[in-house]
Design a binder for these strands. Sequence first.
DNA 1: GCGGGGACTGTTATATTATACCACCGCGCG
DNA 2: CGCGCGGTGGTATAATATAACAGTCCCCGC
Lengths: 164, 164
Amino acid sequence: MTETRPADSFPAPEHDHSECIESALAAAEETCRRRGLRFTPIRRRVLELIWQNHEPVGAYHLLDQLSRDGRRAMPPTVYRALEFLVEAGLVHRLATLNAFVGCAHPDHAHQGQFLICRDCRRVVEMESARVGHSLRREAEALGFSVEEQSIELTGLCPDCSQAH
Amino acid sequence: MTETRPADSFPAPEHDHSECIESALAAAEETCRRRGLRFTPIRRRVLELIWQNHEPVGAYHLLDQLSRDGRRAMPPTVYRALEFLVEAGLVHRLATLNAFVGCAHPDHAHQGQFLICRDCRRVVEMESARVGHSLRREAEALGFSVEEQSIELTGLCPDCSQAH
DNA sequence: GCGGGGACTGTTATATTATACCACCGCGCG
DNA sequence: CGCGCGGTGGTATAATATAACAGTCCCCGC
């Protein structure tokens, strides 16, 4: 059994978030360049909006913000950008929230496990090899071949847990 | 580490499904009686419709079928019944499909792991203690306290896998 | 240059899923 | 009786997502 990768933990409340945004954009730029994908202004802007914080964002919220840019954006515009970003592994969709969150490890293919705080709504992405392997092994024992996985845990993050 | 419970596997294509329906209804009756919950005609009928097969059903599909009963059902009627059934542990909601499936083990509280065939759409509920524990342990290592979990694997069931 | 094709975006319309809110009813109980 | 509460009926609307088609831009081959 491989070891769990060093997982991110919940970011300190007052960390320098502009750095998160910048590094996410830079990583996206790099990923797209390497893979010959087009990181157009809309896609870039949507990714930037998603990274405004560590909370998941709904498509229509993004739409509002795009409109505030002056752009008269319609739903398909946002959904197309989101589809691209998800395909490219730059963003994850959280099925339990119908919302999107920036990917913490865009450098390699993966489908992580998400910890969602029901209080402050922040999300952290774990990537436990142990969990992934157990699941796959048990599914295969039933003859099932796994293609996609969606694992989302809801609860309280350390900070909110402490604040009761 | 506790052992995985004996998991259900995918039902044979031609099993006697009326038996599934009947046993699900009987178990529901019993569960509600024991816990002082009201298993009203609408709730019973919705559960029966959900058990028509082993595929997840959308709320509006249930609504159509209720209407065909002669009942002029409106969305809140169905959603209220579904809310009750989910709370009572008789039905699970699949977040990745926005759909509902009968619970295979209504006798005890649990949140399982779902295997969803993307071809025939059948669903099987695993209940792996190993996976549950690993997840919880790794989340807690990050200071996160888990309250709900949603684990859904999409892929091919044995039958569809064989049929390529 | 210029024409064809593909990827991206704009726009309209609509589908799908879910909830807010208020009225009514039946029933147990003080 | 009158009250409250859980369940249901019904209207309206919110929130999420996609279909379908037209226009634009740019690369690329000729």
